[in-house]
């Protein structure tokens, strides 16, 4: 409701004068809308080009793409690209790695974030908590390149901190960058390092919203800290946890390119456990320049991803409380 519209209506004057005034206001209304539209336009153009035009890119998955011929000039080959894609072990391996590692990150990340949030909740009154939070949040704002640097400082075969330590206690050093079997664990630790602070903040705000009287009565009933967590905190923030789990599961086919590319130093020897769809697509597209293969993998990452987001958002919508909407739409 536009209040100014009413306020600036003529208070006195003949009917004709009033109509003229009204016509002026209508023109004003139009001008105002035009201004708003023009203000929105730059961003709208960007969204149209980068979000909607790129949707035509899915067509590439069905063509033998040649740069010279362009997206729609290239020869249509039906499902051939997909047949080739799934004939190679690499694409399947990348898919399994993406899903497996994401499940690991989701499970580990949720448990760690809940635990940390609870610890912070218990000492929330302390002045020190602010400083702890600063420390815990910092990693998310360090670029993956630099993360790759310090992981190297830790894991370098000859002089990395961990191998120096292993040597000092008489154990043989490990060739980390040649040993794919360790990397699910290493990547989990790095992703926890990076994201734990931020996700704990979300659960912490959920815990702070819990009525303290619940804790009082639990304490009077003789509940210890663990029982308080189990019977008060956990049930209260369970909806938040479930919703976060669902929303992250919707993105299970999307991996963080920086984590998998920089932290592993893009070591081919590690691909068996660290190659994910995003790194596979990058390599096919830019390194080996097999655009059609990349597009086929991209197609199912995008399409399956879209379906998952729609389905999981629908589920979240069914279970969320009306007063705090959490789904995307």
């Amino acid at each position: 409701m536009d209040i100014s519209f009413n306020q600036s209506l003529p208070k006195t004057g003949s009917l004709r004068a009033g109509r003229e005034r009204f016509a002026f206001l209508k023109r004003d209304h139009f001008r105002r809308n035009l201004t708003w539209f023009l203000m929105a336009l730059p961003a709208l153009v960007w969204i149209f080009v980068f979000k909607y035009l790129t949707l035509f890119g899915v067509w590439i998955a069905f063509t033998n793409y040649k740069v010279r011929r362009g997206v729609f000039g290239s020869e249509f080959v039906g499902l051939d690209n997909f047949r080739f894609l799934f004939a190679t072990d690499t694409a399947l391996r990348a898919t399994f790695n993406t899903i497996g590692l994401n499940l690991l990150f989701i499970a580990g990340g949720t448990i760690a974030a809940l635990f940390l949030a609870w610890l912070l909740y218990e000492i929330y009154a302390s002045k020190l908590t602010k400083y702890y939070q600063t420390m815990l949040l910092l990693p998310r704002f360090i670029s993956w390149v630099v993360v790759g640097y310090f992981v190297y400082a830790l894991l370098a075969t000859d002089n990395g901190l961990i191998n120096m330590f292993l040597r000092s206690i008489g154990l043989p050093p490990i060739q980390w960058y040649n040993s794919p079997q360790y990397w699910s664990g290493i990547l989990l630790l790095v992703s926890l390092w990076s994201g734990m602070g931020i996700s704990s903040l979300i659960y912490l705000s959920g815990m702070l919203a819990i009525d303290v009287q619940l804790f009082e009565s639990a304490r009077i009933d003789g509940a210890n800290k663990w029982q308080q967590f189990k019977y008060v905190v956990f049930p209260m923030i369970l909806p938040l946890v479930v919703i976060n789990l669902l929303l992250s599961t919707a993105y299970i086919l999307n991996a963080d390119f920086g984590l998998f590319f920089q932290v592993t130093r893009n070591q081919p020897l590690l691909y068996p456990t660290t190659d994910v769809l995003d790194t596979y697509i990058y390599r096919s597209l830019i390194v080996t320049q097999n655009v059609s293969m990349a597009a086929a993998a991209q197609f199912y990452q995008s399409i399956v991803g879209f379906v998952l987001v729609i389905v999981f958002n629908w589920i979240v919508r069914r279970i969320e409380r009306a007063d705090e909407p959490l789904s995307l739409f």
């Binding site: 961003a43 709208l44 969204i47 080009v49 980068f50 979000k51 909607y52 035009l53 790129t54 949707l55 035509f56 890119g57 899915v58 590439i60 997206v71 999307n254 995003d278 697509i281 990058y282 597209l285 830019i286 655009v291 990349a294 597009a295 991209q298 990452q301 995008s302 991803g305 879209f306 987001v309 729609i310 958002n313 995307l328 739409f329």
Partner: peptide, 17 residues
Amino acid sequence: VFFTMLFNGGLVPYYIL
């Protein structure tokens, strides 16, 4: 504007664009 939050064309079309 907000419908675009649901899908992601990904790297390939973005790169070609």
